[in-house]
């Protein structure tokens, strides 16, 4: 393992996309200050410390929020979404990608990030975290892992590198689809059902 190099790589991606992470507040109606899903495990819910100060500053300006929202939307592909979710009467049907993503997330990621991706006392809520993250940065974090010393608490957060795990890397697109649906608020917590047409 070469955690240092991986951390640098992730940081570089993070720096390149710092403006995206500043959509943390803008992308959601509910203010993140009231989200305790990680029970305070992380002081700064928006990601790497390099981008946090800037994102806080950016969020004080309404115009920058608009810009960032557009940028985020432009980044999510043709129909804007990597998933399909249809909910009625509290039951949600999802595309095959999301269903596979749910299962792979459950098998490999939920031990730390919790069954609904809402985080634990020791891993961040991905429902929140993905609000400021593009797919490239997500994949880089999954493959390379994240080692982070929080200077406000003096404590480490470490996500392992999954680059050598085929079951994760072969399904990283599906895991992204599931998490994005959760993060966008389109898919509620719990086990979804797959759509019949397997679209």
């Amino acid at each position: 393992m070469t955690p240092t190099r991986q951390t640098i790589a992730v940081t570089l991606v993070a720096l390149a996309t710092w403006s995206l992470s500043s959509t943390v507040l803008a992308a959601d109606d509910a203010p993140i200050v009231n989200d305790y899903s990680n029970m305070g495990a992380e002081y700064n819910p928006s990601g790497d410390s390099q981008s946090s100060d800037k994102s806080a500053a950016e969020n004080t300006s309404d115009s920058s929020k608009e810009t960032d929202s557009k940028q985020a939307a432009a980044n999510t592909g043709a129909d804007g979404k990597p998933y399909k979710v249809e909910c009625a009467d509290g039951k949600c049907k999802v595309s095959e990608d999301v269903m596979v993503g749910y299962e792979k997330f459950g098998s490999h990621c939920s031990q730390c990030h919790a069954q609904n991706a809402e985080g634990s006392t020791f891993a961040p809520s991905l429902v929140q975290r993905l609000k400021g993250m593009d797919q490239g940065r997500f994949t880089a974090a999954v493959a390379g892992g994240v080692t982070r010393l929080d200077s406000t608490t003096g404590q480490y957060s470490v996500m392992p590198a999954w680059a050598n795990n085929e079951d994760v890397m072969n399904h990283v697109q599906q895991i992204w689809a599931f998490l994005k649906a959760r993060s966008d608020g389109e898919l509620p917590a719990g086990r979804p059902q797959q759509m019949d047409d397997k679209s």
């Binding site: 039951k91 949600c92 031990q111 919790a114 006392t121 917590a189 719990g190």
Partner: peptide, 18 residues
Amino acid sequence: AGIGMAAGLTDPNAGLGA
């Protein structure tokens, strides 16, 4: 306990997310 209990346990009888 911090993961099993802390985050978003769902009630299977109350519909998804409820």
